[in-house]
Design a protein around this nucleic acid. Structure first.
Lengths: 118, 118
DNA sequence: CAAACGATTGAACAACCGTTCAACTGATAT
DNA sequence: ATATCAGTTGAACGGTTGTTCAATCGTTTG
């Protein structure tokens, strides 16, 4: 009886199942990347920023006004959203205008709303 | 010149834009709910559990074995996934078997993988 | 150039979250 | 009933993370 070095007390309940899953499931590194992407969407402030930018392009000051937050807090979150390629920005004079990077984000938010409305 | 009580230094840059966004964007409460849903997906361990359960139904001990984690850590995360209605469970003797709650989760994970692969 | 303003950045603090450890529950078998 | 095993739960610890505050950058204007 082969014993794994990983399980709870002594041995695995269903060795076949564990081996099958280990071979078939996605790589941990890829899943961590996807988790990192979802983590960016997993914040109320960032979600509100995205929702605002879905209406129209906005500068940082206007986002802060619409959300009732400081420019600094908003800018920090915009940095996170930009790093995740969820939003893009464009400078115009002293202002920086942000908008949704691609419509892939929209489908993601819709999917999330679907899961919640049930 | 009407002044809002919310902006950065003194006044809003584009009042019309702010008013439009405030009226058209989703409610903060709904966005918080969606954010909470995405936050559950925003963890590498939970993502690996989901990926494992996409292969086949598994008991807690086997998930722990497949992931190289303790039963306790896995059970805590399964509780989070269950609360978010992402997985469901079924008791069979001493074991508890977990599986994906609905195929809505699958589309969500695929969407996330798409965004990463680009 | 200097002042003003929109925006960014870094440090610091508090709140949140994942893992560990230990105690406990529920079910099966002796 | 007692023991054993799968699983759950709660407290605690450490790491992460969001907001605040202050300082700074970049651009425009006087």
């Amino acid at each position: 009886m082969a014993r794994g070095e990983f399980c709870c007390t002594e041995n695995v309940i269903h060795e076949g199942a564990v081996a099958q899953v280990r071979a078939a499931m996605h790589e941990a590194a890829a899943l961590d990347t996807v988790a990192g992407f979802f983590r960016v969407l997993g914040d109320g402030t960032r979600m509100r920023i995205i929702s605002a930018l879905l209406v129209r392009e906005l500068c940082v000051c206007d986002i802060a006004a619409a959300l009732g937050m400081t420019k600094s807090a908003v800018s920090h979150q915009l940095g996170t959203l930009r790093a995740a390629r969820l939003v893009k920005c464009r400078r115009e004079g002293k202002s920086v205008f942000y908008s949704i990077a691609d419509d892939h984000v929209i489908k993601m938010l819709e999917g999330g709303l679907e899961h919640v409305h049930e």
